[in-house]
Every structure is written in C-alpha cells, then in structure tokens.
Design a protein around this nucleic acid. Structure first.
Length: 289
DNA sequence: TATATTTGACCGTT
DNA sequence: AACGGTCAAATATA
C-alpha cells in the first residue's frame, strides 16, 4: 500500500477496525467474569470510540473532506451505476467453538444454490440466493468464500438489493446458516466491509428493505430526505448524532430493531437501549465543514 | 410433507 | 476450451 506524505486512510481504517475487533474479543472474554457495571461500560465506551472514529472517517469521505489523507489512498473511482445491480463485499471472521454455537446470519433468509471450486483459490465458493426469490421475486444473492490466507475469515459478496419482505427472525429460533468446508454452524463477525465505488464506506450487513445501495452508503442523506424517518431511532439530541452510529438504521420493516452481531452470539436482533444509544454518540458537528 | 442442501450438468463469456 | 455462475434432480433434514 502506498503512503504519499500524509496519513494513509486504508491503514487508519484497518487499524481502527482491528482495534474494534480486539475490543469486541476482550468483551467476549471478560463478559462472564465482569461483575461491575463500570467495567461493562468501559468496554462499551471503547467500542463506541472505535465506531465514532470510523464514522468520522466515513463522514469526511462523504463530505469530500479527504485532505487528511493521501490522495492515493482512495482507490477506485465511482462506477457508473448504469443497469448493473449493486454489489459489495464484506469480510467476516468466524468465531466457532464451544459455547459459541451462535447464529450466523445477516438477518436475511438465504438458500444455497451452488458451489464451485475457484481457480487459484484454496476454498470453494458457495452461492446463495434469497429464499423469497420465487415467492416474491427477490433477486438478491450472495457468495461466500473462505479467504486464502486466513480460513477463519469469510469474504461475503452481496449482489443486488432485497425487494422482499422478510419475516423478522426470532431469537434462538431462527435458522442458522451453514457455511461450507465442514464448518457447519458458525458465528460470524464483521471484519471489514467494502463496496466497489466506495471502498471506505463501511457497510452494514443489516437488511435494508426496499432501499437502494446508496441508502447503505449514505444513510444520513436518506435521513435528511425523509422527514418522517424512523424518529424513534434517532437520538433526541441532534440529527448529526445519527451519523456516528455504524449500523445502518434505515429499516422500514423492523423499526424497533437493528441487526447486530453480538459478542455473545445471543441474538442477532436486539431492542435498542435508549441509554446506550445516546451514550454512544458524539457530536461531530465541530468536525463538519 | 415441505423445505433446504448437494452436486453434476448446463450455459454464457472470455 | 476453460472458467464462473446457475439450474435442477437427487438427497437430506425438520
């Protein structure tokens, strides 16, 4: 990776993402023995700091405020959207093992329809389509493949947006997703997300029903353009605060929840705790032009 | 019985 | 012809 003069944005994001991951791991390890609420709050604050930092970077990218980083750090150019369906990828780490028979899922129902050995790759690629393809004509698909260099990380390539209406997955009852290569049921944890046109905008694996991929990339823009937009999901403090929340909150069908991969693998969907929600925000208005 | 997965065949692109 | 993506019949599972 090139470094020209100033900070390299990719490196910064990579470091922050890794820090967030490690903090998550720490929380996972400490959770059973953490008794004081202060300790719990501390870990949560660490996590939210990483979220805030990543969100700030994303916001700067959105606003064209790239001068903090080297010009070469922004790879790829905006692709003409044309008629091609949106496509983006996510890298997720597998957290398997005893006690972690967590649910894997990105809150959508997928059906596997194929698997292929890929030339030059150590692991096969699995193909999934939305379960509701035939019933609702939903054309969303995804491909899942183990990374060559780290088999504990899967690359998930999503193609197309869901046009279906999915039933809300129920805690502990939802169907688990089985990944290939003998891993059976695993829990996944997002490591890194990217999209062709906007490689540094972190994507949620959260479902965004009937929204375009731009809503994934620019949820805040959608927010600004939708006056009646899920008011209960917004911090009462400031609308800008919303920018600091990593998971995409654009969700017309499950307005009371957001999807999230929790460290304990308990549930994928959780009710937003108003207190947590507010405490995790920072006011970034000072950083905006 | 209904739904999901497996896996070889098929097809379009390069 | 090789490759990647999809189809669909056979099989497995709930």
């Amino acid at each position: 990776m090139e470094k020209v003069g100033t900070l390299d944005k990719k490196t910064v994001i990579s470091e922050l993402t890794q820090g967030k991951e490690l903090a998550n791991e720490l929380k996972k390890q400490l959770y059973p023995i953490m008794t004081s609420p202060e300790a719990c709050g501390l870990v949560d604050k660490i996590l939210s700091s990483y979220d805030n930092a990543l969100s700030l970077i994303n916001c700067m990218a959105l606003l064209g405020n790239e001068n903090l980083f080297s010009p070469n750090s922004l790879q790829g150019s905006p692709r003409s959207e044309g008629k091609t369906s949106p496509r983006w990828s996510e890298q997720v780490r597998v957290c398997s093992g005893p006690g972690l028979d967590g649910q894997v899922n990105d809150a959508y129902n997928w059906r596997k329809y194929g698997q292929k050995d890929i030339l030059g790759a150590n692991h096969p690629r699995a193909y999934y389509r939305c379960t509701h393809r035939h019933t609702q004509g939903c054309l969303a698909t995804k491909q899942v493949q183990k990374m060559d260099d780290d088999p504990s990380i899967f690359e998930v390539i999503y193609k197309g947006n869901h046009s279906c209406i999915q039933q809300r997955l129920k805690k502990k009852e939802e169907k688990t997703e089985r990944y290939e290569a003998g891993l059976g049921e695993v829990k996944i944890q997002e490591v890194h997300s990217k999209e062709e046109s906007h490689p540094f905008i972190s994507f949620p694996s959260t479902p965004v029903e009937s929204e375009t991929v731009e809503a994934h990339i620019f949820p805040e823009l959608l927010n600004f353009s939708k006056p009646n937009y899920s008011p209960q999901l917004l911090s009462p403090a400031t609308s800008e605060s919303y920018l600091t929340q990593s998971p995409c909150l654009v969700n017309d069908f499950w307005p009371e929840t957001i999807s999230h991969s929790t460290p304990l693998g308990e549930d994928l969907d959780f009710l937003i705790d108003q207190e947590d929600f507010e405490s995790n925000f920072i006011d970034i208005s000072d950083y905006l032009p």
